[in-house]
Design a protein around this nucleic acid. Structure first.
Length: 420
RNA sequence: GGAGAGGUGGCUGAGUGGUCGAAAGCGCUGGUCUCGAAAACCAGUGUACCUCCGGGUACCCAGGGUUCGAAUCCCUGCCUCUCCGCCA
């Protein structure tokens, strides 16, 4: 959510900002409602002041055993006027709120303007080596090794699901453990949080109302399956005032992620790179505003650390404004190179939301001057399993059809060094 | 799922229609005292909004309602606790 004061004081800045995200919210309409709202408040507060004063006099008279019919009659009329204005104020505020919740966060100045084609690669790591044999895509090598069964998953749940078996499932568990161990030893607190959350939590992190169609919703209770544990982690601190001493808060968790992927039919449908349910390790930081961009860099480095440990080539891009998600002010995408599908696969998005989510969640902190302020929130995958496993099956594939286990994972695999 | 009890400031807790934004205690901040600390004593101690910058309004879980007037009465929702049922 944006600050209404910012809209009032810098409407052109906001308009320019949301235009960079191709958003067409009518800012002038909001400002008009805001003016209307303030006019109503001015009027109704004056009336309420009068009512309070006279009601006090009524109380005094009654106590003294005097009549106060005149005052009561006059205040009845004032009261009616007040409830009319109260209603009007509620209506205006509701209309305003319903517009405000659709405004995306505005991009940071360092974000390139434009669509996906304007994303900027800021660094690359590792060497893309061409193997001297034909590398099979993960769905083929996975089936051959008996560790991946997409057909069975399709029977159970329809398209967009996968089953890992035996050492495939074991590999996933090893990766999760490796990532959690890495992040916790770097200061992140491991959290095991709910996978089903209220609409209010989805609103807090900015998934609702805009992304409602991309999520699974329960029919009886209006609960949502999390599309990422960012939702559970960040909302741990909603409707709360933190102490500055508690910051920065660093959290990490492993969870399944559920995504309807509405409108993505036919896109990257083979294998496990685009599915309705996948596992992910997610990092979230809640930090002081002044430090958030610095903290975004270290969070991104933390995600990169995993890929470096696994020796998988990757690149980091700054997303252009049009490619940014609804709530993000700046985002780095990490993409790894998968040798079988011969493509860059998005493996992590590290974003700074500034105070956008904090406002929606009403999460605040008391700074050293005891002033209550909104902190900044940051998150990033560290990393997504459904793309990491394909990359390992492809990049670590051998000519004989076996797959070598990355060295750092061997201890997590009871010493197993190779599948197949 | 059934029955009951309850949600008041940072915390404990009083308040059942009229000077209640809310007693008291604790905590916290400042001061006196002290070499310093503790104790004692004194003072202060919420947030948001509107403003013609004088001040005003709102907030006692949330949202409605009754009333001249609501922390207090009514309705709805959420949450917590106790007992029963069910259950990995």
């Amino acid at each position: 959510m944006l600050d209404i004061r910012m809209l009032r004081e810098n409407p052109e800045l906001v308009k320019a900002g949301i235009a960079k995200k191709n958003d067409k919210t009518d800012i002038d309409k909001i400002l008009q409602l805001d003016n209307e709202r303030r006019e109503i408040i001015r009027e109704v507060e004056q009336l309420k002041g009068e009512r309070n004063k006279v009601s006090g006099e009524v109380a005094k008279k009654k106590k003294a055993g005097e009549e106060a019919d005149e005052e009561i009659k006059a205040m009845k009329a004032v009261g009616e006027k007040i409830s009319g204005l109260d209603q009007k104020q509620r209506d205006v505020e509701r209309d305003m709120h319903n517009l405000m919740i659709w405004i995306p966060n505005i991009p940071h100045d360092s974000v390139p303007v434009g669509g996906e084609e304007n994303n900027v690669v800021v660094r690359e790591w590792g060497e893309i080596k061409k193997k001297d044999f034909k590398v099979l895509p993960h769905w083929e090598i996975g089936e051959k090794l008996g560790i991946l069964d997409i057909a069975a998953a399709t029977k159970i749940s329809g398209s967009g699901f996968y089953i890992l078996k035996g050492l495939g499932a074991r590999l996933q568990r090893a990766l999760v453990a490796y990532m959690l161990d890495t992040h916790t030893s770097d200061g992140f607190l491991e959290i095991a949080a709910p996978f089903i959350v209220t609409a209010d939590s989805m609103f807090g992190t900015g998934q609702l109302p805009k992304l409602a169609d991309d999520m699974y919703k329960t029919t009886e209770d209006e609960m949502y399956l999390i599309p990422t544990s960012e939702v559970s982690l960040t909302n741990c601190y909603k409707q709360q005032i933190l102490d500055q001493k508690q910051l920065p808060i660093l959290m990490v968790s492993h969870s399944p992620c559920f995504r309807r992927e509405a409108g993505a039919a036919g896109k990257d449908t083979r294998g496990m790179v685009r599915v309705h349910q996948f596992e992910k390790v997610e990092m979230v930081k809640i930090v002081e505003p002044e430090k958030s961009y610095e903290e975004l860099e270290t969070l991104t480095a933390q995600a990169e650390k995993i890929l470096q440990g696994l020796q998988i080539p990757y690149r980091v891009s700054t997303l252009a404004s049009g490619d940014l998600s609804f709530a993000a002010a700046k985002c780095y995408d990490l993409e790894l190179w998968a040798e079988g599908v011969e493509r860059w696969l998005e493996i992590s998005s590290c974003s700074n939301f500034e105070d956008f989510q904090a406002r929606r969640m009403n999460c605040r902190y008391k700074d050293s001057d005891k002033k209550v302020r909104f902190p900044h929130t940051i998150n990033g995958s560290g990393l997504a399993l459904a793309r990491l496993i394909p990359a390992i099956l492809e990049n670590y594939q051998n000519a004989d059809g076996s797959v070598t286990i990355p060295e750092v994972l061997v201890p997590y695999m009871s010493g197993i060094e190779k599948i197949g």
